[in-house]
Amino acid sequence: MVALVGNPRPGSRTLGAAVEIAETLVKEAGHDDPVTLVDLSALAPRLLAPVPPPEVTAVRERVAAAKVLVVAGPTYKGTYTGLLKVFLDGLPSRALAGTLALPVLVMGDPRHALAVEVHLRPLLVELGAAVPTPGLALLEADLPRLREVLEPWQAAVAPQVRAALAER
C-alpha cells in the first residue's frame, strides 16, 4: 500500500492522518507489509522541472505500481492542492489501471466535503484507478479523534482493500 500526500507542508497533519489510515487498513486487511509513504512536500521543487529528475520518476513509478493507493491532501479553495495535481498530471495516461484508490481530503469547513467526490475522485478515475467506495472528507476538528471518526469509513472500504491486497 502507498500513501500519497499532497500537502505542501512537511510533517503536516494530513501526512499523519494518511499514514494512520493506510496502516490501519493494511492491518485490517490482515497484511503486515509496511506502508510506502510518498510525501510530495519533499519533491515539490523538482516536480515542474522540464525533464523530471530520476527521484520524481521513481516516485511516480512507485505510485503507479501500487495495488492500493491512499491519496490524501488538504482542501485548498474548495479542492485538492496544485502540488497533488502537478504530481498526478505527470503520470502517464491510465497509469493507475489496476489500482484501488482511496481519496481523502482534510478540510476546515464541512461545506467542502463534496470536494473529495466532485474533484479528486474524477482525477483518479481518469488515471484508470478503481474508486469503488466513497472518499473520506475529514474535518480538521476531527483529527484528534481520528480513529473513532475513521471506523465507519474503514468498515466500508476494508473488503475492497483486502481483495486488492490479496491479488498480489
Rank of each mutant, 00 (worst) to 15 (best):
M1W: 08
V2K: 10
L4I: 13
V5D: 07
G6N: 13
G6H: 12
G6V: 08
N7I: 07
P8D: 15
P8M: 14
R9Y: 08
G11Q: 12
S12K: 09
V19P: 00
E20N: 04
A22C: 06
T24Q: 10
L25M: 10
V26S: 04
K27Y: 06
E28C: 02
A29F: 06
D32R: 12
T36F: 00
L37R: 11
L37G: 01
S41R: 07
L43N: 05
A44S: 08
P45V: 09
R46P: 00
P53C: 09
T57R: 15
A58P: 01
K67I: 00
V68E: 03
A72M: 08
A72R: 06
G73H: 04
P74N: 08
P74G: 13
T75G: 04
Y76L: 12
K77E: 12
K77Y: 13
G82Q: 10
G82W: 07
G82N: 10
L84V: 09
L84E: 09
F87N: 03
D89E: 15
G90F: 04
L91A: 13
L91P: 12
S93E: 14
A95N: 12
A95S: 13
L102R: 04
V104W: 05
M107T: 09
D109G: 02
D109I: 00
D109F: 01
P110T: 13
P110A: 13
P110Y: 11
H112W: 04
E117W: 01
V118C: 08
L120A: 03
L123I: 11
L123N: 03
V125L: 13
V125K: 13
E126R: 15
A129W: 10
P132S: 14
T133H: 14
P134F: 04
A137C: 08
L138G: 02
A141L: 01
L143C: 05
R145Y: 02
R147A: 13
V149K: 07
P152V: 02
P152T: 02
W153K: 03
Q154M: 13
Q160R: 15
R162F: 01
R162G: 01
A163M: 03
E167M: 06
R168P: 00
